[in-house]
Design a protein around this nucleic acid. Structure first.
Lengths: 115, 115
DNA sequence: AGAATGTGCAACCAGAGGGTTGCTTTTTTG
DNA sequence: CAAAAAAGCAACCCTCTGGTTGCACATTCT
C-alpha cells in the first residue's frame, strides 16, 4: 500500500469541481479576496463598491457557501460572511498532486533519454 | 516596490477566473488527470472510456486549451493534446496568496488578543 | 483508387447561470 | 409605535454551456 492518504473513516472522495467552478467567476474571486482578509462582512458591505445588485451579490455568496469556501451566519439584522480556508486548502492539495504527477512524468522522460 | 513580482515586461495581470472555470467540470478534471501523466493523447484516445461523444470531448478540450491548461497540435491525421503546467502554476500562486493573506489576518488577530 | 480512421464544423436543444425588478419579512433605531 | 435598514424570496430574462446528431474534410492503410 503506501501513499499515506489518510485514516480509516471513509473519506468519501469529495469532488473538487464545484470548488473550482465557484472560483471561476471574477465577481466571486473578488468577494473571496475581500473575505480572506480576515474580517467578516455583511451582504450590504460586500455590495458597496460593486456595480451589481445586492441580490446578485447574495447569489454569488450562496454559490461560494455551497462550495464551502465561505460561511455565512445571520447575526441580528444582518448576516455576516466569513472566509473558510478548508476547501481552498483542498484544491491546493489537488493541484499539488497534478504538478507532482507532471514532474514525475518529466523525470521519467529525462532518465529515459539519458539512459 | 518589494514583492518580487517579476521583471519589467508588462505582466498584464491576467485573469485567473477562466482557468478556475475550466477546471470546474468533472469531465475536464479527468481529462487533465489523464494528460498530466506525461504522454500526449489524441482526441479518440481521450474519448475511449468516456461515455460522452467525441465532439463533446473535443469541446471540453477546446475549453481547457482556451484556459491554457492544455495545448493541442495537429500531427498528421490526429491531433495530439498535451498538458501545459503554466496556468496551473499560476493559480497555485494565486491560492497561495489567498492563504497567506488569511494566515496574516489570523496572526494579527492573535497578537491583538494576546496583547 | 477506395475504404477506414480521426477531426472539424454547424445546427440544434434543454438546462444552468448571472442579472434584474418587485415585494415581504425581520430587526434596529428615533 | 413608526420609519429605516438589511435580508429573504420569487419570478422573469437572456446568454452561455454541455450535450447531441449529421455531414464534410483530411490522412492513412490495403
Amino acid at each position: 500500500m503506501s501513499h499515506k492518504r489518510r485514516s480509516g473513516t471513509a473519506t468519501k472522495r469529495q469532488p473538487r469541481a464545484p470548488v473550482f467552478a465557484a472560483l471561476g467567476d471574477e465577481t466571486r474571486l473578488s468577494l473571496v479576496a475581500r473575505l480572506c482578509g480576515g474580517q467578516p462582512h455583511s451582504i450590504s458591505q460586500l455590495t458597496e463598491g460593486s456595480k451589481l445588485t445586492r441580490q446578485a451579490i447574495t447569489k454569488h455568496l450562496r454559490v461560494l457557501e455551497s462550495a464551502g469556501i465561505v460561511h455565512g451566519v445571520r447575526r441580528g439584522r444582518e448576516s455576516q460572511f466569513k472566509f473558510d480556508p478548508q476547501s481552498i486548502e483542498g484544491i491546493k492539495k489537488y493541484l499539488d498532486l497534478v504538478s507532482e504527477q507532471w514532474d514525475q512524468a518529466l523525470s521519467r522522460l529525462k532518465s529515459f533519454v539519458e539512459d
